[in-house]
Design a binder for these strands. Sequence first.
DNA 1: TGGGAAATGGAAACCGTTTTCCATCCCGAC
DNA 2: GTCGGGATGGAAAACGGTTTCCATTTCCCA
Lengths: 348, 348
Amino acid sequence: MGARLRAAPRRRRSATIRDVARRAGVSPATASRVLSASRHPVSERGRRRVLAAARRLGYIPNLLARSLLTRETAAIGVLVPDVSNPYYAGVLRGIEDAAGPARRTVILCNTDRDPAKLRWYLRALMERRVDGLVVAGGSFGRAESAITGGALPVVMIGRGPARLPCVRVDNVAAGALATRHLLELGHRRIACLAGPAVSTTAADRVAGYRRALREAGVPAAHEVVLEAGFTPAGVPALVARLLAREPAPTALLAPNDLVAIAVVRALHEQGRRVPEDVSVVGFDDIPVASYVVPALTTVAVPAYALGRAAVEALGGLLAGRPAGTVVLPTELRVRESTSVLDERRGLA
Amino acid sequence: MGARLRAAPRRRRSATIRDVARRAGVSPATASRVLSASRHPVSERGRRRVLAAARRLGYIPNLLARSLLTRETAAIGVLVPDVSNPYYAGVLRGIEDAAGPARRTVILCNTDRDPAKLRWYLRALMERRVDGLVVAGGSFGRAESAITGGALPVVMIGRGPARLPCVRVDNVAAGALATRHLLELGHRRIACLAGPAVSTTAADRVAGYRRALREAGVPAAHEVVLEAGFTPAGVPALVARLLAREPAPTALLAPNDLVAIAVVRALHEQGRRVPEDVSVVGFDDIPVASYVVPALTTVAVPAYALGRAAVEALGGLLAGRPAGTVVLPTELRVRESTSVLDERRGLA
DNA sequence: TGGGAAATGGAAACCGTTTTCCATCCCGAC
DNA sequence: GTCGGGATGGAAAACGGTTTCCATTTCCCA
């Protein structure tokens, strides 16, 4: 004979569908049909009684039990490098706003771009049987696919392996856009602070920078690329190195707005004014970019829209519609941190 | 006779503990005992076989089934007004970093301070049977407690009803701290931009501001409080109103750093320099505060630590330890946006 | 009046775990 | 020789829903 399993004493048992059924004088089957809007017909009288009983008992369905049976959890896992980064905060907000109406909940994981952490979280999400994944700003290679068993729908944000659907911007174009803006203002000595070496986003922007310079016929000797990371750490030293060059650049690209703001400050501390002495362009257009002084000229990346689009693509995948790559447009927002090159000034 | 339920065709069935048991030549009970590190002894031989079978089959336990039985989901719901706000992003990061090691996952909900949205999410979290809740920056009254049935452990961040455990800072003290700093610099006409009227955080800071002024013997007529909200919207108009006063304030408190940065900009646009003409103090010390020019003098609120502490308190609650109120210290960070009052300048 | 279809409702299996009872077996102690 | 007890392992009952089969009615139309 099996055992009478004692309920864990800690949490009091809440009303189950059987309780509702009993109170309504119907079978659990009927109660379920009413409460989960099944297609099976139920008499008006039965429906009313079940609804009344559910209300009276404060019935809250147990999604775990339902999910166990239906194999759907209505939960999606979201992997981002770091929510503290305003760009990813925007992405996350878009994800959540799109997931809510679809009655899906978001399980958040910060990977810090650490593959071990990524895999650890991936496993946790698999154990929870999430319906799908949105992965932003991380690599997702063979090892990761092995964990998901390849069966789990995944949408990448930014860039991922070709086999996975992806929502992104054209970062090569974005890099070129920023660079051409500076070229049009007369700048020729334009430095580029690149993001971390592992980031394809950063690499693409650098590629766009190089391409724009070449197309404008700027000598290759003018190309200056320094690795800076996506955070302001180390920015003053990098700026100092740039200012020490002979001749020094008159404009520069920062890997994102956060770093751009730090660059403006570092230049300020070195006695250079923006944009009179040096022009600075950022990427992302985070909320604060338009409030700082000088307001940042930047290439806007639609973080919020990327998040939304990713969830919509994932929803499509879950509904059986295939998803490909979605490329959203970037846009140059000219504000105050760039200006026409004044030959009499400049860093030199 | 009952029905043979056909498995949903969409998702392929992954290996279950029964598959593992069969392959290892043991019963599901034994397999479970090995895989979930139960106290029940299992022979070394059996253990090895189960582990090998699990590895071979790529077994990933189904947490839904486990949770259904144990009544614990190892998931916590997190309700914040808006992740795009850097302050809440910091809180969230702290929450997640503290939850991870405890093997708990975080379900994120953005409430936008909308009670309807809050209740909607609350219900969704109840359906998912989260183990507990962390609620930041929202009210949590009778109606909300009714949804959770009062049985769900809840930790508030910031401020909540007295009956709930809470992790917060002393915002009255923080407001007084900022104000006293300005008083010490010689300012007497200090304006206060308050946060939204519904926010107790905002109200407390205003109270601290008033208290500090009174204690310094500043005439009540010098008190100026304008409602500004926690976002930069409308800031230029408010600043214009302030500048139009006669005499005009020589210093001001912003409800948070984001607004403070917008205030600095608005002053700049009106031809006033910070701090030479007007001193500005913010709250929170968001990451960007130290990178803008001028670097913001601000009262640091330990967002990350608040998040961590909330999860730790919740963990304690779940382990049966009662939790009270935790008050974390704020700290004045004097940077560049405040300076000694120069009688010859000022707004007047 | 008969018959097919639609409406209505219940019994029970099933999802994948965990855990409680036993049932053995084996060991040393008395 | 038997008895207490620890080690080991299995059967089966939960957890709380959903859904598949039926089993009845009821209804409409020929």
